[in-house]
């Protein structure tokens, strides 16, 4: 079976999950007290009963639940996520507009977390129980017990307010040039604190996973063989142990990449980062549940896509895993 066929099969297998997600999303949408027309009537301040009935008929809200679900499905198939009345814009436009900022933040955070976490995990796993190992384990325990938004705020007080090394928040300095190298440097400076805040917890997680995998792999026969062949310890660690220990990290980071929007909500709110997470926070603050649910649906679908990609990369990375099921 080719890789393409494998992807196709994997996608088909995920189909029931997608359907279930859409159904749950629809039910939650209907569980919200008050409908679209109530919101609009509240916004405009004046609405007669007849006008409201007319609007409901126009939006199809007076039809049966099954009809409405059908309409919702066909709407989704046309990549139409509905309309946000707070922003007076289609939700899909809002999502596309905010996507790049979040993608940048999450990508940088994950890459940094993988680099730091894997390095710390390898060094800790080389000598379990050693001083470095204990330091890493205590540090990661401390990080796990702190709320990420609090870490971010402490970072602001320390690095932005007192030391003045980094900007306090936002995507770029207001009024600064919007393109070229100065802009890139400006955005990078704004990115440091949010990415560090978001990545810290993941770095701690990757460090633990890598450490466990390194310890486990070190006991395997091929490592002893490599050592017996006289290969240097560094080479054994990098080529033989790390390469095999990396698989769980790949799985984890792929899956976490999909669900990172949850963490991004908090971090983007702390740093006023204009991404999807911030949009979710604004949706909550404005009680725009439609928008919030659309973001939830997009993220759920993203997790599934990431799951498929992880499986495919797994098959590509590890030749022992047959692409045929």
């Amino acid at each position: 079976m080719t890789l393409f066929a494998f992807m196709l099969r994997r996608t088909l297998a995920a189909a029931p999950m997608v359907v279930l997600m859409i159904v749950v999303n629809f039910l939650l949408l209907k569980a919200v007290p008050g409908d679209l027309v109530d919101v609009m009537a509240g916004e405009s301040g004046i609405a007669t009963v007849e006008q409201m009935a007319d609007l409901r008929a126009r939006f199809g809200l007076d039809r049966s639940a099954l009809d409405q679900f059908q309409a919702y499905l066909s709407q989704l198939l046309r990549f139409d996520l509905g309309f946000s009345f707070r922003y007076s814009r289609p939700i899909a436009d809002l999502v596309l507009e905010r996507l790049p900022a979040t993608a940048l933040l999450v990508t940088v955070a994950v890459l940094a977390a993988v680099a730091v976490g894997v390095a710390a995990g390898v060094l800790a796993g080389r000598r379990p129980g050693g001083r470095f190992d204990r330091t890493v384990s205590v540090l990661s325990s401390l990080i796990f017990a702190m709320p990420s938004f609090w870490i971010g705020l402490v970072g602001i007080v320390l690095f932005a307010v007192h030391l003045r090394w980094l900007p306090i928040g936002g995507y770029a300095t207001v009024g600064a040039p919007g393109a070229g190298w100065p802009h890139a440097v400006d955005v990078a400076a704004h990115l440091v604190l949010p990415a560090a805040t978001l990545g810290l917890g993941y770095a701690a997680l990757y460090a633990r996973v890598t450490r466990a995998a390194v310890i486990e792999t070190s006991r395997l026969d091929f490592v002893r063989t490599a050592r017996a062949k006289g290969i240097s310890e560094t080479r054994v660690t990098l080529r033989h142990i790390l390469r095999n220990a990396l698989l769980p990290v790949v799985t984890l980071s792929g899956l976490k990449l999909g669900s990172m929007l949850g963490g991004a909500v908090v971090v983007e709110t702390v740093f006023s980062w204009p991404g999807l997470g911030r949009l979710a926070f604004e949706a909550v603050a404005d009680r725009d549940v439609n928008l919030l649910l659309s973001l939830f649906l997009c993220n759920s679908l993203l997790v599934i896509v990431m799951g498929i990609l992880v499986d495919v990369s797994y098959a590509a990375l590890d030749l022992r895993i047959e692409v045929t099921s």
Binding site: S259, G262, V289, L292, N299, V303
Partner: peptide, 18 residues
């Protein structure tokens, strides 16, 4: 599988908001 696939923090936000 299904519940663990859902982004849990966003789901909590959605549930509280609803």
């Amino acid at each position: 599988d299904y519940v663990q696939t859902l982004p849990s923090f966003l789901l909590s936000m959605v549930l509280v908001a609803v």
